[in-house]
Design a binder for these strands. Sequence first.
DNA 1: CTGATATTTCATAGTTTTTTCATAAATGCC
DNA 2: GGCATTTATGAAAAAACTATGAAATATCAG
Lengths: 226, 226
Amino acid sequence: MDRVKVLVVDDESRMRKLVRDFLMRDNFDVLEAGDGEEALDLFYREKDIALIILDIMMPKINGWDVCREIRETSKTPIIMLTAKGDENDELQGFELGVDEYIAKPFSPRILVARVEAILRRASHMAEEECAQAGGIVMDKAAHLVTVDGERVELSYKEFELLSYFIENQGIALSREKILNHVWNYDYFGDARTIDTHVKKLRNKLGKRGSYIRTIWGMGYKFEVNG
Amino acid sequence: MDRVKVLVVDDESRMRKLVRDFLMRDNFDVLEAGDGEEALDLFYREKDIALIILDIMMPKINGWDVCREIRETSKTPIIMLTAKGDENDELQGFELGVDEYIAKPFSPRILVARVEAILRRASHMAEEECAQAGGIVMDKAAHLVTVDGERVELSYKEFELLSYFIENQGIALSREKILNHVWNYDYFGDARTIDTHVKKLRNKLGKRGSYIRTIWGMGYKFEVNG
DNA sequence: CTGATATTTCATAGTTTTTTCATAAATGCC
DNA sequence: GGCATTTATGAAAAAACTATGAAATATCAG
């Protein structure tokens, strides 16, 4: 798995080093910038920065302005660092779309904890919003599915089932497991009902339906390649 | 396959039962403790607990202290349960090395989902659930086998049998032993059925099929070198 | 309540796997 | 080598499982 990139922006190199050391210990990939200009440069150059830790007081372009500019094009989580615990600053930060706000001096461990919490939250959201695989795109919020750009109407159960399949791509799923996750745990009906739903799903997915493979004597598996 | 052990620690037996029921339905092996002391006892006694679900508010030793003590010697994933969604608690939790934090009341399905996510993450780090030997790679999760990079389709029994062979590389296996492990213990069919499966396996494995050696008057052995 | 839709159950047909069995080949022993 | 025993092989029977269509039941909006 690729390591997660974090951009640390602060004009004090001591501070950058401190943060970097702790983040690297947690297996993050750390990029550094010494002022706002450098930060924006780096942010636009690197394509997959997962989170930005941003000092406010910096030469050239300050933290607020960096934040504002980034927010025009991106939702990348931002943690603001500030020397004084000024309530006004904090308020302004949240308005700008800052995700967290940490007052200096801070414990590096708390910083790392917040970084992880935010990334977890962010990935959870992404996970909950959309899932896609080989021409199938699911928008969970909108309860909407497209296959090769064509919209497909799925019933509730079908949607849940497909969602479960896509979340567990490449993993063989027993009927029991599917039943426990897609149906309620207290469902004691016939496991054969899954077959029926799989049949319908395969139909509605057209040629992409073949992604749902039967594993004989076991269950099903969703797999794009192979 | 051995079931994965989860330790559930809560002073309310109702809560324990709830969690236990759901985990057991997902084929986990569940151990219970009613307070922190009991939890630590159990944790040190049992050798292979894969994950701990820990309530904070408990008599004798509270959840934080249990967590702290466990973290001194072990990285076993810990999920914290708490009655109130207090941010400070959460922060403290992450500092202590808590992996997840779930606020009561919670949906058992979410709990189970998190348990699985964490274990998946953990096991991914340790090792992909793969067995391999001399060009044969088995991915148990995906129920998938490749021989020299080429994908090979195995039936359920064939898969189980090969899996058993590879797990016991270099060990001579009597037909009885194979029957007891790959088939059920209460199987009373002909032991010659193994021969047929071995034949098919050898065919499907191509030149690698010769790894399955016949031990005359005894059974079979899987061996790469020799 | 009614009609439309979704979900579940069920019977059956169609597949695939597993087992059995007969025979051929191989092995160990005298 | 010859004999008894064990294993390999191919084919066929038996068993297990899945796909499918249709009917029954549940759900829900109006």
